[in-house]
């Protein structure tokens, strides 16, 4: 895999449109989004429900492709990549954190973090050491063998973050990561994000919670399918 340019943007979108066919006709969810995310930035996107935040996040995570426009990830044009190449980008250069954690609840914290390497070819010992390091980084080294179903919401989300960063990503995408957490747990999770960003990991976070804006280096608002930079 070709490494991303350290100077160029991690993600760039130019006049990106995304529409979905419905029985009532085509719905334009994103309408000409233009954006560049520089390495090391902490971008927070807010906006009302239905404004297109999740659709934007799916495009940014390479889980979906634009209907129109160009999207570059690490300098590579996403629309020119086939399914296998997109999968390779996702597994090697992207980290994702979800609102409801998406953990394998019957497995331990360490096993959940190791799941990050499920489709990678890293040697077992290397994967294990990186997973343990990631857990230590989010403050859960002592909980490695604990089944995640016995953990609190905040701990579960930190396991999810450890999973996302165990293979150091070019871009960490988080969709409402504090949506299911109380205030204290939210603060703890956001502090973890801040530390990761301080370590150089680029973060793209979508939230309803405007209190999280204080962690951002850049603030975008999503309205009616368009992104406005309000930093």
């Amino acid at each position: 895999m070709q490494p991303s340019s350290p100077t160029g943007p991690v993600l760039s979108m130019h006049d990106v449109w995304k529409s979905f066919p419905t029985p009532r006709g085509t719905v334009e969810v994103l309408r000409g989004v233009n954006l560049e995310i520089d390495p090391g930035s902490f971008v927070v996107i807010t906006g009302p429900s239905g404004s297109g935040k999740s659709t934007f996040l799916n495009l940014a995570s390479l889980l979906d492709t634009p209907t129109k426009g160009t999207l570059h990830f690490g300098g590579r044009l996403a629309s020119a990549l086939n399914e296998r190449e997109l999968c390779a980008l996702r597994k090697e250069r992207l980290g994702m954190v979800f609102q409801k954690f998406c953990l394998l609840t019957h497995r331990s914290a360490l096993d959940n973090v190791l799941f990050r390497f499920r489709y990678l070819t890293s040697p077992d010992s290397d994967a294990r050491s990186r997973a343990e390091h990631a857990l230590a980084r989010v403050g859960l080294a002592s909980h490695a063998e604990q089944p995640v179903r016995l953990m609190s919401g905040g701990e579960m989300q930190r396991v999810a973050i450890a999973r996302a960063v165990a293979q150091r990503p070019d871009l960490l995408v988080a969709d409402e990561p504090t949506g299911n957490l109380d205030r204290a747990a939210s603060t703890s999770v956001m502090e973890t994000f801040r530390e990761l960003n301080a370590d150089g990991i680029t973060i793209l976070l979508v939230t309803h919670n405007e209190a999280l804006l204080r962690y951002a280096t850049r603030h975008l608002v999503c309205r009616e399918g368009r992104l406005e930079d309000v930093s």
């Binding site: 889980l63 399914e83 296998r84 999968c87 597994k91 994702m96 998406c102 499920r118 489709y119 990678l120």
Partner: peptide, 16 residues
């Protein structure tokens, strides 16, 4: 379905 989504997010192909 969610687990399938997670696997795809972690780089699994449709074939996997």
């Amino acid at each position: 379905v969610t687990e399938i989504g997670l696997r795809r997010a972690l780089g699994a192909t449709a074939q996997d």
